[in-house]
């Protein structure tokens, strides 16, 4: 089991959350239909990093907020959590990606 610290509700079991996906992907602007690659990247391309990874979870049994989770895929350690707009990796400067 993982315990995810919901920025609003506090630490909760991961069973209260629904995994949404990779939080590092940016949706191309709605009006922007010229950039095929950007859409392809947003919809399909997913890395499978060993080490730190930003993920999006929804606290579906709680406040229903989407929560950004910085997780180490190697150890399952959750290093930080925040709201979708937060950049957790910057916040945890001391840590390098893909450790």
């Amino acid at each position: 089991m993982l315990i995810i610290n919901c920025p609003l509700c506090g630490p909760r079991d991961h069973a209260e959350f629904t995994y949404v996906g990779d939080a590092t992907k940016n949706r191309p602007k709605n009006g922007d239909s010229s950039n095929d690659n950007a859409w392809y990247d947003f919809v399909y391309l997913r890395d499978n990093p060993k080490g730190l990874h930003e993920e999006l979870w929804q606290h579906s049994f709680g406040c229903r907020c989407f929560v950004k989770v910085l997780r180490n895929t190697l150890t399952h350690e959750i290093i930080a959590t925040g709201m979708p707009k937060d950049n957790l990796i910057l916040k945890e400067k001391g840590l390098e990606l893909n450790v």
Partner: peptide, 17 residues
């Protein structure tokens, strides 16, 4: 799995769980 201990969840607390 919420911490229901009095010190963490006293009167006038609420939880969605």
């Amino acid at each position: 799995g919420v911490d229901w201990h009095l010190n963490s969840f006293g009167a006038d607390y609420c939880a969605h769980t």
